[in-house]
Design a protein around this nucleic acid. Structure first.
Length: 489
RNA sequence: GGCCCCGUCGUCUAGCGGUUAGGAUCCAUGGUUUUCAUCCAUGUUACAGGAGUUCAAUUCUCCUCGGGGUCACCA
């Protein structure tokens, strides 16, 4: 009795704690790509991490298109990103936010900063700035704005549209509390200057708008690439100047190419949709990416439900990983094996393979899906069976058609013709067995030439399956053709 | 170059002071199969280096080396 009182107390406390976490500090994450091209592998992984973390906590996952740079962005690129999300089944909550539609919001905050004396107009020309940078570099100093207009109250120079700079702290320490890297501290004098928050044309810059949008959208957990880590102090300056709460950051390590450099578009096969074209399944790609830089013990296979249940950014690795798709092939093969046949039939349409009407499609796919690494491979295998061989691999012919192979094939053809009902693989198997027994030969003596006759090569699925799929007429036709072709030798 | 981050099998990773350093992939070998693939079994391969702390360091600290990121009126 003595035990129960404190125990229920503790339980109650835990219950209230989790209730509080769920209701009052709902996890809100986002993915914020700039639409300069297709969605790439690295972006997808951070998007996936953000998505999973929000889903695990019953929170929100928002999508924001960072299209403030009108010269480099395109609507097509934004749509490409959306297409990729759709293919992968990642659903963003709420409306998609486009930064290009929010100029008035940013203008309001820029004005606020100006009014409060936290930002100022800088009339330095580009040429002057370049010259300053040049001399700093020659003197091996850090290149930074020198703050010459920070406290300027004279008459501004003629003919220069000013940029707006924020008054950043000049001394002191800025600490990024990062969920992956731990606390990372920066010295203001090392990294900060009064950076530009609005260009001469009035348009806001990146470090300003991310902070504003993240704050306004209620983002409290930012998961992004660690190439942003050194931007973070600047954004913290903005958060603090505007009086916003600083979110929790998780800076996930980069994905590197084989040369150990940041994965870029030049590395090829970084377009997410290219994986669709190559015949990869969304679940395989997602499973592959979730394990790149993250792990949950020894587990390798994660269904989407498991990911949503188990993903935790605290388990993200600190170090960069190299992009190597060997494991992706293995995962894809695994998922193809476990995909229902009717789903495969639908998927194969994208690879010019129409199987809906085929009465033996179940037998065919059961046999072939064990063997394919990609849907494309699967489609090719199907073609290789469904279409009669146009030529015989010379090596295979030589190996298979020695001694009495032709006699064996003819015996087999005759035996096949005697049987009335031929439907299932096992029906054909019986005929093969019969011939083997009658002629007192090994299975290989019939299997090899028959395989070459039916498929033109020495590899492939079980012959009984192939014949059941082709039916007796086509089987006999292919045998006859092969006998003819090899009899001339 | 300044600042910041990182360093366990080829690759993805487990490890959170005491382990024969584990799993997966890849590769090799064997088994299964009429063949190939699948599948199963087995095997090769790793704590960057050096100091320190400790009875004990892959694990903690420092240094060196190596790799990466970032330094815009790009995002």
């Amino acid at each position: 009795m003595l035990f129960y009182q404190p125990l229920t107390n503790i339980c109650l406390k835990f219950y209230l704690y989790f209730l509080y976490k769920k209701v009052y500090i709902m996890v809100v994450t986002r993915f914020a790509p700039s639409p300069t091209g297709y969605l790439h592998i690295g972006g997808l992984r951070t998007a996936l991490f953000s998505y999973l973390w929000a889903r695990r906590n019953g929170g929100k996952f928002y999508l924001r298109i960072e299209d403030t740079d009108k010269k480099r962005n395109s609507q097509a690129a934004a749509e490409a990103i959306l297409n990729a999300f759709e293919w992968l089944g990642l659903e963003a909550d709420g409306e998609i936010v486009y930064q290009s539609e929010r100029d008035d919001i940013y203008a309001k905050y820029i004005k606020q900063l100006l009014d409060e004396g936290k930002a100022y107009k800088c009339y330095m020309s580009k040429e002057e700035l370049d010259a300053l940078r040049q001399t700093q570099m020659e003197n091996k100093e850090r290149t930074m704005y020198d703050g010459r207009y920070r406290d300027f109250d004279g008459t501004p120079p003629e003919g220069i549209e000013p940029v707006i700079r924020i008054k950043a702290p000049q001394t002191g320490e800025i600490i990024v509390h990062d969920g992956v890297k731990g606390d990372v501290s920066f010295q203001a004098e090392d990294i900060l200057d009064d950076f530009v928050i609005a260009r001469a044309d009035g348009s806001p810059t990146y470090n300003l708008v991310v902070a504003i949008d993240d704050a306004l959208m209620g983002i409290n957990e930012v998961i992004r690439g660690d190439d942003h880590l050194s931007n973070t102090p600047k954004q913290i300056v903005v958060y603090e100047a505007l009086g916003f709460d600083v979110p929790k950051f998780y800076h996930v390590p980069m994905i590197h190419n084989a040369q150990g450099k940041k994965l870029s578009k030049r590395d090829g096969a970084t377009d997410v949709m290219a994986y669709k074209d190559m015949g990869y399944l969304p679940e395989a790609l997602l499973n592959f990416l979730v394990r790149l830089g993250w792990s949950h013990g020894d587990q390798e296979i994660f269904s989407m439900d498991e990911m949503k249940e188990l993903f935790d950014p605290k388990d993200i690795n600190k170090s960069a990983s190299i992009y190597n798709t060997e494991k992706l092939d293995w995962l894809n093969a695994h998922y193809i094996k476990n995909t229902p046949n009717d789903t495969l039939v639908a998927l194969l349409k994208d690879f010019d393979m129409k199987l809906e009407e085929h009465d033996k499609k179940e037998i065919l796919l059961d046999a072939l899906k064990e063997r394919a690494k990609t849907l494309k491979e699967l489609a090719n295998m199907l073609v290789e069976i469904l279409d009669a061989p146009t030529q015989y691999d010379p090596k295979a012919s030589k190996k298979a058609f020695k001694s009495n192979a032709i006699e064996v094939l003819e015996r087999f053809a005759n035996s096949l013709e005697e049987v009335q009902e031929l439907h299932l693989p096992v029906d054909y198997h019986h005929v093969m067995e019969k011939v083997v027994n009658e002629m007192e030969i090994g299975f290989g003596k019939i299997g090899n030439p028959l395989r070459v006759a039916l498929l033109g090569k020495m590899s492939g699925p079980g012959l009984d399956v192939v014949m059941a799929v082709l039916g007796p007429d086509e089987t006999l036709a292919r045998i006859a053709k092969a006998v003819l072709a090899h009899a001339q030798d």
